[in-house]
C-alpha cells in the first residue's frame, strides 16, 4: 500500500494541470491516526475556486490507495508563497508555457518592474498585458521577440 503522503502528493492541481499539489507547495501535512487520514492543505489565494475540487480529488486518491477514512482540512497560516513551488514544479511550469514566478517577499505597495522571461523562446523582451490572468495566481504577458502571449505565475 502506498503511503498516505505519496497518494495525496500525486493529486494534480485542477487549474495548473502540469503540477501536483506537492510541487505547487500547497500540501502541508498528512497524518494517520488509527486508519484515519488527515490531509492539511493551504490555498494559493483565499478565493481560489479550485480548493473544493482539490479536496475532492485528495479524498478520491486516498480512497483508491486504500484509506477509507479521510479528512481534508485547510490551514491559512503561514500563508502560501510562490517560493514554495519546488524546483521540479518550476521546470514543469516553464515546460508547459507558463513563466514561473520570481522570488516573493520584495513586494511593497509601490509597483516594481521585474523582467519575466518568455517561457517559449527565453527572451527578456516581454511586456505585461494584464496583471490579472485566467486564474487568480496568473498574469497575462506577451513576448516581443516571438510575439507569443504567455501566462506568468505571479510572485506572492
Amino acid at each position: 500500500m502506498r503511503s498516505a503522503w505519496e497518494a495525496a502528493a500525486r493529486v494534480v492541481d485542477p487549474e495548473i494541470r502540469a503540477l501536483t499539489i506537492e510541487e505547487l507547495g500547497i500540501l502541508r501535512e498528512v497524518s494517520e491516526d488509527g486508519g484515519r487520514v488527515t490531509v492539511t492543505i493551504t490555498p494559493t489565494y483565499s478565493g481560489c475556486p479550485a480548493m473544493d475540487a482539490i479536496r475532492a480529488d485528495i479524498e478520491r486518491a486516498l480512497h483508491a490507495a486504500g484509506y477509507p477514512q479521510v479528512r481534508v482540512t485547510t490551514r491559512y497560516g503561514a500563508p502560501w508563497s510562490t517560493d514554495w513551488i519546488t524546483p521540479a514544479g518550476r521546470a514543469k511550469l516553464a515546460a508547459a508555457g507558463m513563466a514561473p514566478p520570481g522570488p516573493a517577499g520584495a513586494r511593497g505597495p509601490v509597483p516594481v518592474a521585474l523582467t519575466v522571461r518568455c517561457p517559449r523562446c527565453g527572451s527578456a523582451e516581454t511586456e505585461q498585458l494584464s496583471r490579472f490572468g485566467s486564474t487568480a495566481c496568473k498574469a497575462l504577458w506577451r513576448c516581443r521577440s516571438c510575439v507569443e502571449p504567455f501566462e506568468h505565475v505571479k510572485a506572492l
Binding site: 490555498p43 489565494y45 483565499s46 490551514r75 491559512y76 497560516g77 503561514a78 500563508p79 502560501w80 508563497s81 513586494r107 511593497g108 505597495p109 496583471r131 490579472f132 505571479k154 506572492l156
Partner: peptide, 13 residues
C-alpha cells in the same frame, strides 16, 4: 492572524 496574513498579500495587488 492566519487569514489576515493571506489576505494582506492579495490586497497589495
Amino acid at each position: 492572524a492566519g487569514i489576515a496574513a493571506k489576505a494582506r498579500k492579495e490586497s497589495a495587488y
